Amino acid sequence: MTARILIVEDEMMVAMEMEAVIEDLGFEPIGIAADQRQARELAELKPDVALVDLNLRDGMTGPQIGRDLAARGIQVVFVTANPRSVAQGVPGALGVVEKPVDDGTIASIIAFAIAKREGRNVMPPPGFVSFSGDITPR
Protein backbone atom coordinates (compact mmCIF):
# COMPACT_ATOMS: atom_id res chain seq x y z
CA MET A 1 0.00 0.00 0.00
CA THR A 2 1.39 3.39 -0.98
CA ALA A 3 1.55 6.21 1.53
CA ARG A 4 -0.98 9.02 1.22
CA ILE A 5 0.49 12.51 1.53
CA LEU A 6 -1.26 15.79 2.34
CA ILE A 7 0.41 19.05 1.32
CA VAL A 8 -0.47 22.11 3.41
CA GLU A 9 1.01 25.02 1.47
CA ASP A 10 -0.49 28.25 0.12
CA GLU A 11 2.16 29.02 -2.51
CA MET A 12 0.63 27.05 -5.38
CA MET A 13 3.82 26.76 -7.44
CA VAL A 14 5.66 25.29 -4.45
CA ALA A 15 2.72 23.00 -3.64
CA MET A 16 2.37 21.75 -7.22
CA GLU A 17 6.11 21.03 -7.41
CA MET A 18 5.91 19.05 -4.16
CA GLU A 19 2.87 17.19 -5.50
CA ALA A 20 4.74 16.23 -8.68
CA VAL A 21 7.74 15.00 -6.69
CA ILE A 22 5.47 12.97 -4.39
CA GLU A 23 3.81 11.33 -7.41
CA ASP A 24 7.20 10.64 -9.03
CA LEU A 25 8.29 8.91 -5.82
CA GLY A 26 5.30 6.59 -6.05
CA PHE A 27 3.29 8.08 -3.19
CA GLU A 28 -0.29 9.30 -3.43
CA PRO A 29 -0.77 13.04 -2.95
CA ILE A 30 -4.31 13.43 -1.64
CA GLY A 31 -4.51 17.17 -2.14
CA ILE A 32 -3.22 20.65 -1.43
CA ALA A 33 -4.61 22.72 1.42
CA ALA A 34 -3.91 26.45 1.46
CA ASP A 35 -5.63 27.15 4.78
CA GLN A 36 -7.03 25.59 7.93
CA ARG A 37 -10.48 24.83 6.48
CA GLN A 38 -9.05 22.96 3.49
CA ALA A 39 -6.62 21.06 5.72
CA ARG A 40 -9.50 19.85 7.92
CA GLU A 41 -11.48 18.75 4.86
CA LEU A 42 -8.55 16.86 3.32
CA ALA A 43 -7.69 15.25 6.67
CA GLU A 44 -10.97 13.33 6.29
CA LEU A 45 -9.23 11.40 3.48
CA LYS A 46 -6.89 9.94 6.13
CA PRO A 47 -3.40 10.83 4.90
CA ASP A 48 -0.44 9.01 6.40
CA VAL A 49 1.89 12.03 6.28
CA ALA A 50 1.31 15.79 6.10
CA LEU A 51 3.90 18.29 4.92
CA VAL A 52 2.82 21.56 6.55
CA ASP A 53 3.97 25.14 6.00
CA LEU A 54 3.53 27.57 8.89
CA ASN A 55 2.29 30.79 7.33
CA LEU A 56 -0.72 30.07 5.13
CA ARG A 57 -3.47 31.96 3.35
CA ASP A 58 -5.31 32.43 6.66
CA GLY A 59 -2.24 33.51 8.63
CA MET A 60 0.13 31.66 10.96
CA THR A 61 -2.20 28.65 11.23
CA GLY A 62 0.33 25.93 10.38
CA PRO A 63 1.20 25.07 13.99
CA GLN A 64 -2.49 24.60 14.89
CA ILE A 65 -3.07 22.57 11.73
CA GLY A 66 -0.07 20.41 12.65
CA ARG A 67 -1.43 19.78 16.16
CA ASP A 68 -4.86 18.91 14.77
CA LEU A 69 -3.47 16.53 12.14
CA ALA A 70 -1.11 14.85 14.62
CA ALA A 71 -4.05 14.32 16.99
CA ARG A 72 -5.67 12.32 14.17
CA GLY A 73 -2.62 10.04 13.96
CA ILE A 74 -1.09 11.72 10.91
CA GLN A 75 2.69 12.07 10.82
CA VAL A 76 3.36 15.82 10.55
CA VAL A 77 6.53 17.42 9.23
CA PHE A 78 6.74 21.18 8.96
CA VAL A 79 8.34 22.49 5.77
CA THR A 80 8.92 26.21 6.22
CA ALA A 81 11.23 29.11 5.52
CA ASN A 82 10.84 30.06 9.21
CA PRO A 83 11.82 27.00 11.26
CA ARG A 84 12.62 29.18 14.29
CA SER A 85 8.89 29.86 14.60
CA VAL A 86 8.44 26.28 15.82
CA ALA A 87 11.81 25.88 17.53
CA GLN A 88 10.08 24.84 20.77
CA GLY A 89 8.26 22.07 18.92
CA VAL A 90 4.61 21.40 18.24
CA PRO A 91 2.86 18.61 20.17
CA GLY A 92 2.52 15.48 18.06
CA ALA A 93 4.58 16.71 15.11
CA LEU A 94 7.81 14.96 14.15
CA GLY A 95 9.86 18.06 13.38
CA VAL A 96 10.75 20.68 10.83
CA VAL A 97 12.85 21.10 7.71
CA GLU A 98 13.80 24.46 6.22
CA LYS A 99 12.73 25.60 2.76
CA PRO A 100 13.72 25.52 0.07
CA VAL A 101 13.63 21.73 -0.19
CA ASP A 102 14.80 19.67 -3.12
CA ASP A 103 13.40 16.38 -4.42
CA GLY A 104 15.83 14.33 -2.33
CA THR A 105 14.84 16.14 0.86
CA ILE A 106 11.16 15.56 0.18
CA ALA A 107 11.86 11.88 -0.43
CA SER A 108 13.90 11.51 2.75
CA ILE A 109 11.42 13.29 5.03
CA ILE A 110 8.52 11.24 3.70
CA ALA A 111 10.51 8.01 4.14
CA PHE A 112 11.41 9.09 7.69
CA ALA A 113 7.78 9.93 8.55
CA ILE A 114 6.54 6.60 7.17
CA ALA A 115 9.18 4.69 9.14
CA LYS A 116 8.15 6.53 12.33
CA ARG A 117 4.49 5.76 11.58
CA GLU A 118 5.43 2.07 11.34
CA GLY A 119 7.17 2.30 14.71
CA ARG A 120 10.68 1.85 13.37
CA ASN A 121 13.59 3.53 15.14
CA VAL A 122 15.27 5.48 12.33
CA MET A 123 17.67 8.38 12.15
CA PRO A 124 16.22 11.64 10.85
CA PRO A 125 17.41 12.83 7.45
CA PRO A 126 20.04 15.57 7.10
CA GLY A 127 18.65 19.05 7.71
CA PHE A 128 15.69 17.72 9.70
CA VAL A 129 15.22 19.13 13.20
CA SER A 130 13.34 16.67 15.37
CA PHE A 131 10.91 17.80 18.05
CA SER A 132 11.52 14.62 20.05
CA GLY A 133 15.02 15.62 21.01
CA ASP A 134 16.72 12.71 19.24
CA ILE A 135 19.00 15.01 17.23
CA THR A 136 20.68 18.35 17.76
CA PRO A 137 19.30 21.25 15.68
CA ARG A 138 21.58 22.22 12.80
Rank of each mutant, 00 (worst) to 15 (best):
M18F: 11
E19A: 12
E19S: 13
E19V: 01
A20Q: 12
I22E: 07
I22V: 10
E23D: 09
G26S: 09
P29Y: 01
A33V: 02
A33M: 06
A33L: 05
A34I: 03
R37S: 14
A39S: 11
R40W: 14
A43W: 04
A43Q: 07
L45C: 05
K46C: 12
K46Q: 14
D48G: 12
A50F: 02
A50K: 02
L51M: 07
L51V: 01
N55Q: 13
L56P: 08
R57H: 07
R57S: 12
M60K: 15
T61N: 14
G62A: 07
Q64K: 15
I65L: 11
G66A: 09
G66C: 09
R67I: 12
L69A: 08
G73F: 04
I74E: 08
V79F: 12
T80N: 07
A81C: 03
A81R: 00
R84E: 15
S85I: 01
S85H: 11
A87R: 07
Q88M: 13
Q88N: 15
V90P: 10
P91S: 10
G92H: 06
G92E: 03
G92P: 03
A93N: 08
L94H: 06
G95A: 03
V96A: 12
E98K: 13
V101A: 11
V101W: 08
D103H: 12
I106W: 05
A107M: 04
A107Y: 00
S108I: 00
I109H: 10
I114W: 09
R117S: 14
V122D: 08
P124W: 02
P125E: 01
P125R: 00
V129P: 11
S132I: 01
S132V: 02
S132D: 15
I135K: 14
